[in-house]
């Protein structure tokens, strides 16, 4: 589903964030991406999202070389990928419902369908009764879960998450990971960047480790 073929990403200052990275993630997989701070985890996810282009090598998503996706094709490409990002998350002047509905509004669903799907997604993350709340009235963990609901509401084929449990206590983190496993169970390819080695090593999934932009080794 996601394939990197000797991908190098060099930022303008000449710093290589990724070096010769090759990997292959199958359709039904859930994969953890780990490594020290600055190892290149976010950079890797950004290449999949087409927030950046590789300096060398190829990135393929669902068999399609992303080099062939022009700037006009980027929105459509992104609509097929759910993302949970470290920083920029929610629209703070819209309530929880509207935040989660955003991908569906963009994709042009009708409002009944939007209502149904948004409530289903909020129910999954346990925030159904907060749908009218503004994000500022939610805790960090709750905001994170709103972001997760938004990432899955459009039923993407791929789910990318960058530090999705950064703000959460261990119990909640485990719950969130369980959510990602559920999505993976219904056929979503999931790629999660995380520092939380203690948590991810308990779960039985492949872990990819980056060090200074290089791939260390893949363990099942």
């Amino acid at each position: 589903m996601i394939r990197f073929d000797r991908v190098t990403k060099r930022y303008e200052e000449g710093h290589d964030a990724l070096r010769e990275v090759s990997l292959d993630i199958a359709r039904d997989e859930l994969v953890f991406l780990t490594g020290h701070s600055g190892a290149g985890k976010s950079t890797l996810l950004r290449l999949v999202m087409l927030m950046d282009r590789p300096s060398r090598g190829k990135v393929l998503v669902d068999g399609r070389d992303l080099a062939s996706v022009g700037s006009r094709g980027i929105p459509r490409h992104r609509r097929n990928i759910g993302v949970v990002f470290q920083n920029h998350q929610l629209l703070f002047d819209r309530n929880v419902f509207d935040n989660v509905a955003l991908p569906l509004v963009i994709a042009g669903y009708d409002h009944r369908e939007i209502g149904r799907r948004v409530r289903a997604a909020l129910d999954k993350v346990g925030l159904l009764q907060r749908e009218r709340a503004l994000p500022v009235t939610l805790s960090g963990g709750e905001q994170q879960r709103v972001g997760i609901a938004r990432s899955v509401v459009g039923r993407p084929r791929i789910l990318l998450a960058d530090e999705p449990t950064g703000n959460l206590d261990p119990a909640l983190s485990a719950e969130i990971m369980q959510l990602f496993e559920d999505f993976n169970q219904v056929g979503v390819t999931v790629l999660i960047a995380s520092h939380d080695l203690a948590l991810i090593s308990r779960l039985q999934h492949r872990i990819i480790t980056l060090r200074d932009g290089r791939l260390l080794g893949a363990a099942a």
Binding site: M49, M51, P75, R76, H77, R78, R79, N80, V83, F85, H88, Q89, L90, L91, D93, L102, P103, I106, A107, R150, G154
Partner: peptide, 16 residues
């Protein structure tokens, strides 16, 4: 600006 970034991130086209 923030909002535009988020909308683009979840697949909003330029027209949108």
């Amino acid at each position: 600006r923030e909002e535009i970034v988020i909308v683009k991130l979840v697949g909003g086209s330029n027209a949108f």
